[in-house]
Structures are given as C-alpha cells and as structure tokens.
Simulated assay, not measured.
Amino acid sequence: MIETINQSQETAILESFIELVKSPYGDFAAIGKLSHFLNNPATLQKIVDFLSLTSQGKQAFVDRPLLGKIDLQQLHQLPKHTLGYMYAEHMIRNGLTPPPVNEIANDQFTFLGTHITETHDIWHVVTGCNTDKPGEVKLEAFYIAQLASDRLFIALLAKNLLKTAMYEVELCEQIMDGLSQGWIMGKRAKPLFGIEWNRLWETPLKDLQTSLNIS
C-alpha cells in the first residue's frame, strides 16, 4: 500500500528540510523537527515490522533494553582492544557526552527512537565510520540499509548531498565513496538493531565486527 502525504504535511516536511540544510551540522533540534514530520506512525510501524523479521529485533521490541548509565572513565580502563575502551576513546576524543539515562520505553515507537539515538556512537565505533562529513554519510547509508524504510535517514543523506553540492563540492568523491561503502556494508552486515551493547563492553571489537560480518 502506497502511503500518501497531504499538502500540509508536504509543506511542513519541505520547510523543516530547508531549515535543516541551512543549519550547522549536528543541529539535533532541526533533525528532531524533520523527524517529527517525516516518520509518522504508519512509517514507524513499517520499520518496526521490518526489524521484527529477525528474532533479535522481535525480542528487542518485547524486552526494550536500554543502555543505562555509562561511565566513560571506567570504560576507558578496559583493555584497549575492547568495545568499551574503543567507545570511551571515541566519545572522549570527540568531546561527546554519554546519552542520558532513559526511562523504560512504554511503547515500540518510543523504544525505536530511543534505542537508535542512544546507540548512535556505538554504531560509529562498530562500523568504523568517522565523525567527519564523509563518515557521517557512510553511517547514514549503513542505517538506510539496516532500517529499510526510515525516511529520516534518507532525508539526512539527501541533506548532506545538497550541502556538499552547495558548499563543499570538493568533498564529492569522499562523500560518494562513503555513501556506496556504507550502503554495501549495511546490506552485508548482520542486524545491529536490538543488540544489548552494555553486555559487550569487555568483548574485543574485532571479534564483534567479525561476528556481525563487518569488515
């Protein structure tokens, strides 16, 4: 069934998209506004249904596991080859703070958004995607391959392509390499959604990548 968008929704989407294009990179308020208009309940249900095709995804929507409190300094004391150390190193090096401790998600849609948001930087580490512009594009393409019909990540990818065309066309080759590599890597990899990462901090990162078919 084809999902239709009425004129008022279309106007809101286009206006929020233009606002995001004009915003600096990493403007989460503008991203949230665009997400609100793009990913309506029907779209979110399609994503939930797709992710529930695997036993891991289906169980995640039952248990709704969240990361809980993260102590970066404690993780940074783990052996350097572990997921926990590499995640802490990524966060500290980029001046990032751990996601806030979230309450139990009361419904599938809330869990979907919370889980994707709070594990974003873990996905950066596990996929090896940098936090520069080509790296973000690479991860966005990976998300699209893993989440199927998530309109937000398609829009974020479109936004970054437009910003590249307008302001940094010299990055075109790096951006397109990142897009193609992220898409292929996301299609080949096992699903990352629903993994309880806080149980894997002491696991060697390379072992995780091998088990998830990420090279």
Rank of each mutant, 00 (worst) to 15 (best):
A29T: 13
D49H: 15
Y167G: 02
H90K: 14
T54Q: 04
D63F: 14
S8F: 06
E118W: 06
M176N: 14
F28M: 11
N106W: 13
Q108E: 10
N39A: 10
V21I: 14
K58S: 04
T203G: 05
W123Y: 05
C129W: 01
D49W: 15
C129Y: 06
D132M: 02
E89G: 04
E136G: 03
L200F: 02
E196C: 10
D107R: 05
Q174G: 07
G26D: 08
K159N: 13
D71S: 15
K190P: 00
W201H: 01
Q7I: 10
D27S: 12
V48W: 00
T164D: 06
S52K: 08
E103R: 08
I214K: 05
N198W: 07
I144E: 09
S8C: 02
P98N: 03
L83F: 00
D63T: 11
L212K: 02
E136H: 03
E173G: 03
L38I: 15
G194Q: 00
Y85H: 12
W201C: 01
E3R: 14
H115Q: 12
G57C: 00
V21D: 10
L200E: 07
F142L: 03
V137W: 02
D207S: 14
M1H: 09
K133C: 06
P191Q: 01
S8M: 06
S35W: 09
R93S: 15
D49Q: 15
I13W: 09
L83I: 04
L75H: 05
L67S: 02
L83S: 04
L34D: 00
Q209I: 11
G95H: 07
P191C: 02
E15D: 15
C129F: 02
A141C: 14
L205G: 02
K163C: 03
W183N: 09
Q45R: 14
S215K: 13
N130I: 13
T210E: 12
M1Y: 10
K187Q: 11
T4N: 12
